[in-house]
Each structure stands twice: as structure tokens, then as C-alpha cells.
């Protein structure tokens, strides 16, 4: 069998010799190693105070985007729901009424848009599938909760707020 790395060492199964049976040399070697580790740089990050930077390709919580005039981009075409391997996305479409042109960009919009964050695997396929650039993955993750219902994110949780408008979801 081919070795996976060049660091593999065969196990020495010879009985211990006198020097090894004394245990002490081995113990001192081990203690020297642990002593060295005392002065090593610590791997821990003090989480709430310092945060580790996300990698540039990090995929976090989804948001629904708006266009430059503040109108919702989503047309409820359902391509994201089709693309979703975890079947986390459901939506209901509705027709835009006259007088709602400042709210929705196209004639059709999503009246209901839900993502179940317990199902979502944050693969980013919805982002790739969207023809209207309406859904994006951000660099945050879903906050913890004791209730299952809190993880079904509706439109009010996902849509990015208009400038000057307070967000309805305190967690976002």
C-alpha cells in the first residue's frame, strides 16, 4: 500500500530496554516538549472581543436585494427554489397592482418568501441561479435560538431594509 504522507513511521514493537524502563528520560523529554509549548503563541481568539476574519468566499445568511431605486428585485420566478439542494426555499408569487411600481421592479413579485435556515446548507446555488441578482449570501450567520420557528426566515427578515428604515428583525 502506498503511504499517504512521507511522515508515516512504523511502530516499534521491541520490548523496552533498561534505559527506557526507567521511564525518566522519556518523562523528561515529554516535559521539555510541554515546557516549550508554554511559551508558544496561543491559538485561541477571545471571541466576542476579537473576531476571526471571514475568508473572501464565505457564504453566510441570505438577503434579498433591492435595486438602486429601492424596489425589490425578486420576481418570484422560483429558480432559486429549484436550484436549492436542501429544498429550503418556498415562495408565493403575486401580481403587481398599479400604484405599486415604487415597491416592485417587475410585474410579478414574491408575496411570501421563506428560507428554512435549519435546512439551508449555505451552498450558494440560489445566488448563482437567480437571473435578477435578487438573492445574495452575506458574511453573517444565523443567530442561535431555542425555538424552531425562529429559524424560518420570512421576507421581513431577509429583505435588506430601505435606507432610513429601521429593521423589523432585531436579530439581523
Amino acid at each position: 500500500m502506498q503511504a499517504l504522507t512521507d511522515r508515516a513511521v512504523p511502530v516499534d514493537r521491541r520490548p523496552l530496554n533498561f534505559w527506557e524502563k526507567m521511564y525518566l528520560p522519556g518523562i523528561f523529554r515529554g516535559m521539555a516538549i510541554t515546557l516549550k509549548h508554554i511559551f508558544r503563541k496561543k491559538a485561541t481568539i477571545n471571541y466576542p472581543e476579537e473576531k476571526r476574519a471571514f475568508s473572501p468566499v464565505f457564504r453566510g445568511l441570505q438577503i434579498l436585494n433591492r435595486d438602486e431605486e429601492g424596489r425589490e428585485r425578486c420576481t418570484a420566478c422560483g429558480l432559486c427554489a429549484v436550484a436549492c439542494p436542501a429544498e429550503a426555499i418556498t415562495m408565493e408569487a403575486a401580481e403587481r397592482k398599479p400604484g405599486e411600481e415604487h415597491l416592485y421592479r417587475e410585474e410579478k413579485y414574491a408575496a411570501k418568501y421563506e428560507i428554512n435556515m435549519l435546512r439551508c446548507i449555505f451552498c450558494g446555488f440560489c445566488e448563482e441561479a437567480c437571473p435578477k441578482d435578487a438573492i445574495y449570501l452575506t458574511e453573517t450567520f444565523a443567530p442561535s435560538s431555542f425555538e424552531r420557528e425562529h429559524f424560518i426566515y420570512g421576507k421581513e427578515d431577509l429583505l435588506i431594509p430601505l435606507p432610513g428604515e429601521e429593521t423589523k428583525n432585531p436579530q439581523a
Partner: peptide, 10 residues
């Protein structure tokens, strides 16, 4: 903690 490259209770 320090032997295992951690910080310990702080």
C-alpha cells in the same frame, strides 16, 4: 491551557 496552547479561564 498554556501547555495545550490555549488561554484558560479569563
Amino acid at each position: 491551557a498554556v501547555i495545550q496552547d490555549r488561554r484558560g479561564p479569563n
